[in-house]
Design a protein around this nucleic acid. Structure first.
Lengths: 339, 339
DNA sequence: AACGCTAATCTAAACGTTTCGAACGTGTCA
DNA sequence: TGACACGTTCGAAACGTTTAGATTAGCGTT
């Protein structure tokens, strides 16, 4: 900017004023400055600007795994939304590990991000302190965090699983295996409640041996399913609480020599684009990824626009049961349906 | 830092020296300073540091669509690699649009990124100028760019498709439909060459009506497949040059009332984790995503470590044909195989 | 002719670091 | 005792912006 100012024979203040439109500058100088900018190929240094202004127009976004299709989609939507608003997005993957998450958040805060969207892992870790210090607005995504009272957008997980399991029960299933992630994050906790409530509402016993938990990965779903299928009275249906784990479930079913839905019915959380075209077409709970991403972005953009003091807002969206053909009717129902 | 210095009754220079280890500071002052840092909860401002040092320890990464599983995986690997090296990653999605890409790149450069990894779209746009101005090292990912001579890591696309199509030919297929993306990017261009060469090597005619192109999206694959299947002499196999488009292909096959592989064989580029568990299990060309991501990261990290003047390095990796059961043998071959 | 008002422009301080070179105290050597 | 070297600490400039407040010029009023 100094060079531009010299070339145009004006002060840097005038150049800045023109660039930011913060003061009127005469047509004559405007022209000289613009010419100089073109000649020199000048680009404003956003770092210096950030230092002075105290804002970077950059936000941080952390998710456990970007390869989980749910997060892939949400990240994509959020990235687009902030791009439209002229913000850059720094993406971090925490790998479901609290220490990693804390490091990532520190990295982001060091870089003076203006805001933060977090699909947290573990118990939140640093998150609590950050939200309290309140320098940067934080939006929780997908997962609430005990003791952290801030904007959030989550799914009505309890209800979504309740509906899915109730659907299985209506099909005649009585022993329904349930594979969950670690229960220290709110969605897994709530989904489990939905499962239990659905059984209870139908007057079915809660058989603890039908509940298995894993660490969200395909291999965990595989192992859990293997265990369920080895029970002497094995379940007739399995509900898997996330997408990577259901892949494991399908592999286990295949490896053990069974088939879906003939021998065992499967439903799961999170839809994916090709659920429609391959066999079996999985019955899933679809999350409104577009809405989730947009709402999260909007909450944060609203804070960034200056609305700092509004009380925390918690948005709860609804899932949708996508009924396909991976679950089959049992017993008497099977007759009437197939007839 | 000023506050820390005051609290510890030293100068800011000493605090800085301690923090960076650039000079020895006495045990006594060290202790006072560390105490002050703890008391105040001081965090160094990376923006100010960046301004002074001329480096942000941040890189830019642009891909066409993060929801394309190939890019999802590569982004994930790259993000991890830079995370390990203490770099932050700014992610941008260009939506296969050149203007968007140019804007994103400008946004990134404004923020003084130290380096850039680009899976380009269109003809490169701004990219050319940037690489020449040579302030930030650039690594091309997946897609080369004419006139841009810089580090790159790509697949041997020609060979990969040659092998896949040759495999189809060995199965007895003579009319093989081919669905490509826009040919202005090198992988699509090279894949097409692989297709033509495979036909030629087998002495088969190149029937132009069997070649369709689309803009990488599912809907494009759908439309292209619909056209291919409506030909009076329709192909017995279809090769689809990317992942989203093959979803469209499968949907079209389903909608038109055919089935794969009984009525039509399908193979495609890009593997995905559940190709194994659903039916039909797609035969695909798997890219070594892990290696691609790591190599790209390494090339850039090497430049960032100071190796600026080495000549551009171009890494060409090999794809792997994953033979599953979405392609069936034809004619005489069908007899011998099914027997 | 002196005054005040407005619009345009400029000067200079500030943002929070890093770093160069100077300053200081202490011990060693002639 | 004075000179010198060495290890430690400090002062101040610099990075490239923004912005408050000062300055200037032009112009209409009285």
């Amino acid at each position: 900017m100094l060079h531009v100012a010299e070339a145009a024979r004006v002060s840097v203040a005038t150049v800045s004023a023109l660039l930011n439109g913060t003061a009127t500058v005469s047509p004559e100088l405007t022209q000289r400055i613009e010419q100089a900018i073109r000649d020199i190929g000048y680009k404003r240094n956003a770092i210096a600007r950030s230092l002075k202004m105290g804002t970077t127009r950059t936000i941080g976004l952390t998710v456990p795994h970007i390869t989980n299709p749910f997060f892939t989609d949400v990240v994509s939507v959020i990235q687009q939304a902030f791009d439209r608003a002229g913000y850059a997005v720094m993406l971090c993957c925490t790998d479901e590990d609290l220490n990693t998450q804390d490091e990532q958040i520190r990295l982001l805060l060091d870089r003076m991000i203006d805001g933060l969207i977090v699909a947290r892992v573990g118990d939140g870790g640093l998150l609590k302190g950050i939200v309290e210090d309140a320098n940067v607005p934080v939006v929780l995504l997908d997962r609430l965090c005990e003791g952290v009272d801030t904007d959030a957008v989550v799914l009505d997980n309890r209800r979504a699983v309740f509906d899915a399991v109730t659907y299985l029960i209506h099909l005649g299933h009585r022993r329904i295996g349930y594979i969950t992630g670690t229960s220290d994050i709110s969605p897994m906790h709530d989904r489990m409640i939905g499962y239990r409530e659905a059984l209870q509402a139908a007057g079915l016993p809660a058989a603890e041996e039908l509940i298995r938990s894993g660490n969200f990965h395909e291999i965990d779903g595989y192992n859990a399913t293997m265990q369920l299928l080895s029970l002497h009275d094995r379940p007739s249906a399995i509900f898997s609480a996330n997408n990577p784990m259901v892949i494991g479930t399908m592999k286990a079913i295949r490896d053990i020599g069974l088939s879906c839905p003939e021998d065992i019915s499967v439903a799961c959380f999170d839809d994916f684009p090709w659920s429609d075209v391959f066999v079996p077409q999985l019955t899933t709970v679809a999350q409104p990824v577009q809405a989730i991403g947009e709402q999260a972005a909007n909450l944060l953009l609203d804070r960034l626009a200056g609305n700092r003091d509004a009380p925390p807002r918690k948005l709860v969206l609804k899932g949708r049961l996508m009924i396909r053909n991976s679950c089959r009717p049992l017993g008497a129902l099977a007759q009437s349906v197939s007839a």
